[in-house]
Nucleic acid binder design. Structure first.
Lengths: 245, 245
DNA sequence: GATTCACGTTGACGCAGATCAAAGCTCACG
DNA sequence: CGTGAGCTTTGATCTGCGTCAACGTGAATC
């Protein structure tokens, strides 16, 4: 079904989680060393996904979750009439595929925005292991819960914030996630287009572009194409809290 | 902390789930009769919640999930600046509190829109039981996953639909959920105000009111205050699919 | 049955962001 | 190194919904 996706050779996979430098961010959080060893068997393959390729598509049968080892993804949903919306951007250590559990079919498309690598976690195995390893079970529940809370945050974005607030919140969120991964909080490259940002934020690409320009004029950030430098974190945060009404 | 909430006497609780007529909608879905019997111990109390009362508030420590036995709720989130947004409306058989698992604190407020009754499910017990009962574990995962998918649907609403589409989608969603509970698909009373509908849909109450009036003028529905009758389901559905572009 | 209060409806007007249009920038490819 | 394609920026104009304001309505209370 996904012929374009290349599985890695099995030998490379032993000690998948226990040696992974993302284990403090990803599913293994909170496990003891022995439990971590058990988890190595949970990840049965890794897959390389080239930029533009799907890991799964809306409607595909759900079988596994995907932990992002390296790279950057977006998820989106298509309406019958052709309109679509980006529902999230995911980076290393985050889990893709949670949308498929409920109906046994994926409810969105997951697309690599750069060449990436994911760990395939067959869901049935995850459920089995989490019956044995309480810490895994609990952490998995936390991951799902946080996804729900994150979505509520996006609903707030879309429901009550104005364009510039949305973009400021978006940049601050990216900054924080890059920080957690050891990258610069203030300087990074966007992996997505203005159109994709707009789709995520419920705005048109022109509006996103104008907001970037406005932030730059005000000295809050510098923008060179996809390269963003945040000059005044506080200024962006102020945009979110200070509200005329 | 919630002094206003009245726990029911314990004797009333034995056989909580196994006798509940919501067991086909709620957490016990897919359990065998014996497993169902085990579940009866999971629900340790029920609570009456009067209209306007909270089951929990944002920031409260997370300890339990709440299965709605009767009644109707909303969840909302407040921003520091006073703006707030309704993140969902919940009815019998649905689970409240999933937002608290990730951080051990509730991330929103849950408020009864009519006098209601909820089953209290201590989360630690749920995790314990679901380690023993695979079907419970799996169904709980489905419940969480569906919540994520539902939220994505709301994101689509807020991100790309126009006012009348949002309201049509809202009415159709209510209709479908009432149907699943054995009520009329075409005639029901709204438990929430125009303001609350607007907050959920990212619209102002005036816009909601105008859209209701417009639907009525077009013969799609009749509106008498909170009483709604859907005259043309197909007409509402058409609003969603037919899109000028 | 008069009073009140929360909620809802309707109209007039304004504005944030959409839409339409044109031009610039960057990079891949022959 | 010239060409083209995709992405981005910027300007001009339009419009759906927000805002403000006034009035209507039904249910509760006395």
């Amino acid at each position: 079904m996904h012929a374009q996706v290349t599985p890695l050779s099995v030998p490379a996979l032993r000690e998948a989680c226990s040696q992974c430098n993302l284990r403090e961010l990803c599913l293994p959080v909170g496990l003891s060393p022995e439990e971590l060893g058990q988890l190595d068997e949970l990840v049965d393959t890794r897959r390389r996904v080239l930029r533009g390729q799907h890991i799964y598509r809306s409607g595909d049968p759900f079988e596994a979750l995907y932990a992002i080892k390296t790279g950057f993804f977006k998820t989106d949903v298509l309406l019958e009439d052709g309109r679509d919306q980006v529902t999230g951007f995911q980076m290393a250590g985050e889990i893709l595929g949670l949308d498929g559990i409920g109906t046994e079919k994926h409810a969105c498309n997951a697309i690599a925005l750069e060449d990436s690598e994911v760990c395939v976690i067959p869901f049935i195995d995850l459920e089995n292991y989490s019956r044995e390893i309480g810490a895994l079970q609990h952490h998995f529940h936390k991951v799902m819960s946080r996804e729900i809370v994150r979505d509520h945050g996006v609903m707030m974005l879309l429901g009550i914030m104005r364009a510039e607030e949305r973009l400021a919140a978006f940049l601050l969120n990216l900054s924080q996630r890059f920080t957690a991964r050891g990258y610069s909080p203030t300087e990074f490259n966007l992996r997505m287009t203005r159109n994709e940002i707009g789709s995520y934020l419920g705005l048109k690409l022109e509006t996103v572009s104008r907001a970037f320009s406005r932030f730059q004029d005000e000295g809050l950030i510098t923008v060179h194409q996809k390269h963003i430098q945040i000059l005044e974190v506080a200024g962006l945060k102020k945009l979110l809290s200070e509200r005329r009404n």
